[in-house]
């Protein structure tokens, strides 16, 4: 235990844990090419590329994808503004209710998603608000704030407070200081937070089922396929594409914040 070589048992356990986390996702990639279209047979009886073409020609998949992308874009934008404002207020100053604000930001992901979902739905019911694009965005932006907030608040803490003073000392007013000093220093953290928020929104299903009404985001489309499989091969292809699409912002966020602060433990 004192040496810097890990015991064999630990090595095996750690490797097994990692494999457990990755093998199932890799399996998806194999199934996307199977010729079998009625069951989940393993090993696949044959391999084909034809389902990619079939999926490409499906308007319902495209519509769901487009809705998901639009929702994620708008929700991320709202979360960026709200999360940054909140982080700026909490990181820079001590004020009454500061702890409460942090808790309020974290609550939407700390509580199970179904509670956020059903709360929003009953509020829409009480307020006679019909389901729309914006009811989905409302829910998504609410739980995306925390991701941006966490990234921004960590960066604000690392950025020396005297930078702001130095800028004002050198003649810059509050707005110039924001533009020339604060924004450049938090930009990568915001970009990382925004990417994660995008991934989170793009993938969200639990809250969305309560706020979407008859609209279909890509995850809702997938959920229906899961509950009542009708188009297994198309689902396989969509699942693989979703994995690839969400990996990009995650890797991007990782490289942006690497070596500065961890994006760990931010949860979903």
């Amino acid at each position: 235990m004192h040496s810097d070589r890990a015991p064999l048992g630990l090595k095996i356990a750690a490797a097994a844990g990692l494999l457990f986390m990755h093998l199932p996702i890799l399996l998806i990639f194999v199934y996307a090419f199977t010729t079998e279209d009625k069951s989940y047979q393993w090993p696949p009886p044959g391999y084909t590329l034809k389902w990619f073409g079939v999926t490409w020609a499906r308007p319902d998949v495209w519509e769901a994808l487009s809705l998901s992308l639009r929702v994620a874009a708008i929700s991320t934008l709202i979360a960026l503004v709200l999360g940054t404002l909140c982080a700026a207020a909490v990181a820079r100053t001590r004020f009454f209710g500061r702890e409460t604000i942090s808790l309020l930001v974290i609550l939407p992901i700390a509580l199970p998603g179904i509670i956020t979902g059903i709360s929003l739905r009953s509020a829409f019911n009480l307020g006679d608000i019909p389901f729309s694009f914006w009811t989905i965005v409302l829910g998504h932006a609410t739980f995306c704030v925390v991701v941006v907030y966490n990234n921004a608040v960590a960066r604000f803490r690392r950025t020396s407070g005297s930078l702001v003073e130095a800028s004002m000392d050198l003649g810059a007013n509050a707005f110039q200081t924001f533009r020339f000093v604060i924004l450049p220093n938090i930009a990568t953290a915001l970009l990382a937070g925004g990417m994660l928020a995008f991934a989170l929104s793009f993938d969200e299903v639990i809250v969305t089922t309560f706020t979407a009404g008859q609209q279909q985001t890509l995850p809702i489309w997938m959920l229906e396929e899961l509950v009542r499989p009708r188009q297994r091969p198309v689902t396989n292809v969509v699942a693989m594409v979703v994995v690839l699409v969400t990996f990009l912002p995650i890797l991007g966020a990782y490289y942006l914040t690497r070596g500065t602060e961890s994006v760990a433990g931010q949860g979903k």
Binding site: H22, L196, D203, V243, F247, K268
Partner: peptide, 8 residues
């Protein structure tokens, strides 16, 4: 795995 799609 943490961030990849829940449904997938």
């Amino acid at each position: 795995p943490l961030w990849s799609s829940y449904l997938v």
